[in-house]
Write a protein that binds this DNA or RNA. Structure first.
Length: 309
DNA sequence: CGTCCAGGTCTAC
DNA sequence: GGTAGACCTGGACGC
């Protein structure tokens, strides 16, 4: 047995569109994830509690299920179950989006999301999403890919069947491994520039137990303000990065207002510019889902674009 | 070739 | 609390 099937249903019984989930945001294009052309399936290399990481392919299965197929030699039943649970986490199937869908159903411009959109893909760990987000700040997407690619290629533990080189087939590195890498790696290999010091400081704090990022995902009782405060306290994390990380944490109250979303919104509503306040007013009706509604409004055509990428 | 700036943040006023 | 300037990197531009 190398395949396990996962029902594509949210926790509130709402539908889940796998392809739309695999196109939910740009991180799907960063190692250790790799989407197929058209985003109909996804390869991802995941750590396991015991033994080497394994690469799985997530694709459409039977009867409204996602199938998770382990590449290479067959895993143990225990490991297959573990990989399936991690994929459920990555696909965010434990979230209940039905209250959001109830609001969106009355919004002509967002009613389409109720067919199963809005499930933001997440990394297995908060640490990974924090590192990746810092690698998106103040640089072009090509630079983000270079930095994250180098981190995974040189520091990530490979699956047994991984290719000899390249970033794929390797799990995202642990904080310990990223802390060991040292300044030289971030400067000369990842070419992360001034971000290197931020990444190193966060990796060291997490490795030494001074910082528990995973707690942010584990504890739903933490108020949004407290989560945001802790994120802003991290070196290299400002308002944009905190809002983006909070979205990966399933906290959608804040809108991501940055140099891409503002002009994109303006273009979609046929204006030259758009103010933060006007956008916040437009999406206020979504309450705790405002940031998610805004994001989906901007990325509606991403699935269609994926067909021609 | 120099300047600008990309899915910003930090520090110093 | 709000606002300049500096900041690594490397493509995209203008000259």
């Amino acid at each position: 047995m190398r395949t396990v099937e996962i029902p594509l249903v949210g926790r509130g019984g709402e539908p889940v569109d796998l392809r739309r989930t695999l196109s939910s945001h740009g991180f799907v294009d960063l190692p250790p994830m790799r989407p197929s052309v058209g985003h109909r399936s996804l390869e991802i290399t995941l750590r396991t509690a015991r033994g080497r990481p394994r690469t799985v392919r997530v694709h459409a299965g039977r009867d409204g299920c996602a199938a998770v197929t382990v590449l290479g030699r067959a895993p143990s039943a225990e490991q297959l179950g573990e990989l399936g649970r991690t994929v459920r986490h990555v696909l965010r199937l434990d979230a209940d989006l039905s209250p959001f869908y109830a609001l969106a159903a009355d919004d002509p411009e967002l009613a389409w999301v109720t067919r199963g959109a809005g499930r933001m893909l997440r990394s297995p760990t908060v640490f990974e999403d924090v590192v990746k987000t810092i690698c998106t700040t103040n640089c072009a997407w090509s630079a983000t890919r270079r930095m994250v690619g180098a981190i995974v290629e040189h520091l990530g533990e490979p699956a047994p069947e991984a290719p000899a080189s390249g970033p794929h087939g390797r799990a995202f590195p642990t904080p310990e491994r990223m802390a060991e890498a040292g300044e030289g790696f971030y400067r000369e290999v990842a070419r992360a520039g001034y971000r290197g010091a931020y990444l190193l400081a966060i990796a060291e704090a997490a490795a030494e137990g001074r910082l528990d990022l995973e707690d942010l995902a584990r504890d739903p009782e933490l108020p949004d303000e407290e989560v945001e405060r802790r994120l802003l306290a991290l070196p290299g994390v400002g308002p944009y990065a905190a809002a983006h990380i909070m979205m990966t944490l399933g906290r959608y109250h804040r809108l991501i207002l940055d140099s891409w979303t503002l002009p994109t919104y303006a273009a979609k509503v046929g204006r030259r510019t758009a103010s933060d306040r006007a956008i916040e007013r437009r999406f206020r009706r979504y309450g705790p889902f405002a940031g998610l509604a805004f994001w989906l409004f901007l990325t509606r055509d991403w699935v269609d674009d994926a067909l021609v990428r």
